[in-house]
């Protein structure tokens, strides 16, 4: 860590503040657009008008919208994300239980996406305009076009029902051992990775083509460096720069995609939680989960950006 990296970190942190504020306000407005009255939901079907009114007062729903927003921001600042109606527990506790599942899924999927996507892209670029290039690019295109939940169901039929190789659903925590954990996540993570692999392969191919056109590659070839060495030592490192930039987008896609994949494989993660919360009209839980996911995402992006500054000395703060 040096001054340049610290400066970048400070700048990014300063920029993140208004973003987080927008995120909080958007989430708040979203929840106040929701049809129906949270007080009625909490009070239950048999409650009288008085009981509903009392709960409305308790929740602060009888105050003006700006007042409610300020109160909510104040409680957020205290680390209070509200209480889930469905689970009857604090939103942060509910999230804490689900987050390891989603993070595990995202992590394994990311670990599949990056090497496969980059390798395919570099391969296609190296064999540019050959049948191999066309085949890889066609597969990449299919990857970004096929709905993940559909291919996931087909995959379950093949690998779990017919062949019986992999579990069809469920999660095994890491504390039960590395192998069972990995085995449970392998299929969902691979299905989740398909879209990102396609996306990354297309990007890595065009990045590699750019690099392969550079003078220093021609020089390397001219001085008789072997083809493998040219690609691995000279081209590959520079190919990685745009790939690192894409990390933020890939993580965003992974987190978004995990909502659907968790549903298919019955993984008790954040995505499944948010869908259940929406279907049961659990307002505080929807609000808290959306917010926490966005916060997490901003934090990850910040981290990626700082690592990027560290890795690539050309990036300047400002």
């Amino acid at each position: 860590m040096n001054l340049r990296v610290l400066n970048r970190l400070a700048l990014r942190l300063a920029q993140a503040v208004p973003v987080l504020l927008v995120v909080a306000v958007v989430t708040f407005l979203l929840m106040h657009l929701l049809p129906g009255d949270p007080a009625v939901v909490i009070a239950g079907p048999e409650a009288g008008a008085e009981a509903i009114e009392r709960i409305r007062h308790q929740l602060g729903l009888d105050r003006s919208l700006p007042e409610q927003l300020l109160l909510w921001l104040a409680s957020l600042a205290r680390g209070d994300f509200g209480r889930s109606l469905m689970l009857n527990q604090p939103v942060l506790v509910a999230l804490g239980e689900r987050l390891p599942v989603t993070l595990s899924l995202t992590l394994v999927s990311f670990a599949i996406t990056v090497p496969v996507g980059v390798a395919l892209g570099v391969l296609a670029a190296r064999f540019r305009n050959t049948w191999l290039d066309s085949a890889v690019m066609f597969l990449a295109l299919v990857g970004v076009s096929v709905p993940s939940f559909w291919i996931a169901i087909l995959s379950v039929i093949l690998f779990s029902v017919i062949l019986g190789w992999l579990p069809a659903s469920g999660y095994v925590p890491l504390s039960d051992g590395l192998l069972p954990w990995l085995l449970a996540l392998l299929q969902p993570a691979a299905m989740l990775a398909l879209f990102q692999i396609g996306f990354l392969a297309r990007m890595a191919r065009s990045a590699t083509l750019d690099v392969l056109d550079q003078d220093y590659i021609r020089t390397a070839r001219a001085k008789g460096v072997s083809e493998w060495s040219t690609i691995a030592k000279h081209a590959f490192r520079n190919t990685l720069i745009p790939v690192v930039t894409a990390t933020g987008i890939i993580l965003s896609l992974l987190m978004g995609g995990s909502v659907v994949i968790e549903q298919v494989f019955a993984l008790p993660g954040v995505g499944r939680l948010i869908v259940q919360a929406i279907l049961t009209r659990d307002y505080p839980l929807v609000q808290g989960t959306l917010l926490a996911l966005a916060f997490l995402f901003v934090a990850i992006n910040l981290l990626v950006d700082v690592i990027y500054t560290w890795v690539d000395p050309r990036v300047r703060y400002g």
């Binding site: 920029q15 208004p18 973003v19 987080l20 504020l21 927008v22 995120v23 306000v25 958007v26 989430t27 979203l30 929840m31 657009l33 929701l34 049809p35 965003s252 896609l253 987190m255 978004g256 995609g257 909502v259 659907v260 948010i274 869908v275 929406i278 929807v286 959306l290 996911l293 966005a294 916060f295 995402f297 901003v298």
Partner: peptide, 24 residues
């Protein structure tokens, strides 16, 4: 641009899920 950054902080599909749930 900060407003757009704020909206982009939600993965697109999750923002769409939240909004679709809110609006019916």
């Amino acid at each position: 641009m900060r407003l757009m950054d704020g909206l982009m902080a939600f993965p697109a599909i999750i923002l769409a899920i939240g909004l679709a749930a809110a609006m019916g």
